[in-house]
Design a protein around this nucleic acid. Structure first.
Lengths: 217, 217
DNA sequence: CAAATTTTTGACCGATTGGACAAACGTTAG
DNA sequence: CTAACGTTTGTCCAATCGGTCAAAAATTTG
């Protein structure tokens, strides 16, 4: 007999067997690899199936459509991706809070470069699949944190600037080390492009965001 | 009779008619639009041909292969893309030089967002077609400018930091406004996401790179 | 004008794509 | 054992892909 249709829902409520959970994870892991380096349109189901070590029809048994895989991936991504910003809290010293936010974001770029590239690919192509999330959930979160930062400015704890662009600049500088990793390593060369480049980046970013470039004195 | 094979070389020395020059420009303009939003693999010759207002075989008369279009596009891009960095000069006040470099890069993100996204797409996917250029020409240029910046640091004109990561951070923050434009506009909302966002970004970045976030005291 | 050349097009090709489907296989409960 | 259910696969399909080709149309040249 054929498998039940229930399995393939992809987005609906799950009642999954052990094998289904395992295989779905396997597929998502493989799809993350493929999608993050080739983009959605540039990736094929065959590629993902091969990376997951199964046949194409077998993969399509767990995810009915290519889009379902991508969608599931993006949903998971956004939660973990915004976690560092959610943690930015009003308690504690503002400069310390910002510094550790930068550090956490840089660590995510180092530890989850594929997730970063998957996200970058989506945004680059106009965010066709997550536009509502950007204008909704993301904007709400950023506005909320911008208000926190504004409070710090009013209290004289940090310099007065635009909180939104401040957040953008933190995103940009940290994700750069994931999204443009190839370029970073090529420019730094074999000596400085090794594992130490993230420590160097952390040191530099801390100095940039705290003190800027003006010489002391 | 059929057209001559000479026309399609794409990379070789050109001896082109007026029509050939015009049509090639038309195609490259259309291809920039398509490639920058869909990536190389995600774009089709049909899409480019339609955007250029001609039939697919007609397009293939001017560029024999899809790759030839992309290659021509990338070659042109790199020259204009690195122009601002080349202009970074040892004459003049260091802080002013850096500030105007940032401004020029931000203007490029504003005026040539498609070029920026084309480049980002290529790097994101591992830079398969321009890797030699990154490790060669680009690295040489950056190393050269890093030396200039180091000189400024030794002279006490700017704070001591890592020149390479400084350049990375300028690239990241400015190109962010082209590559992640959709996200920027979504987060800023209808009010602040309008044309003024680049002015706001310019003001913010100037302050960030010069003074950092520490409150004045 | 007419001949030569350049440009454009419609028809076509093999390969690859996302996906469907039934049959086969594996597993487990009674 | 067997029936029921979950899993896997080979085969197939229509659509789309990059690209070819010969002939028609347009343009340039003498």
């Amino acid at each position: 007999m054929r498998g039940l249709a229930k399995v393939n829902t992809g987005t609906e409520a799950p009642r999954r067997t052990r094998i289904q959970q395992e295989k779905r994870e396997l597929i998502l892991e493989a799809a993350l690899e493929v999608f993050s380096t080739n983009g959605f349109r540039g990736s094929t189901i065959d590629q993902i199936a091969e990376a997951a070590g199964m046949s194409k029809p077998n993969l399509l048994y767990y995810f009915r459509r290519k889009e379902d895989i991508h969608e599931t991936l993006m949903q998971r991504l956004l939660d973990t991706w915004l976690a560092p910003l959610r943690e930015l809290d009003d308690i504690g010293d503002p400069l310390t809070e910002l510094r550790s936010y930068i550090r956490r974001k840089l660590e995510m770029a180092r530890d989850f470069p594929r997730e970063s590239r998957l996200f970058a690919n989506e945004i680059l192509q106009g965010a066709p699949r997550i536009m509502p999330l950007l204008a909704g959930e993301l904007k709400t979160l950023v506005d909320e944190k911008a208000a926190v930062i504004k409070g710090w400015m009013r209290a004289g704890k940090i310099a007065r600037t635009d909180p939104w662009h401040l957040i953008f600049s933190i995103w940009a500088t940290t994700q750069h080390y994931a999204d443009f990793d190839v370029q970073v390593r090529a420019v730094l060369g074999p000596n400085r492009g090794g594992d130490g480049r993230f420590e160097d980046a952390a040191r530099f970013l801390e100095q940039l965001f705290l003190d800027g470039l003006k010489p002391k004195g």
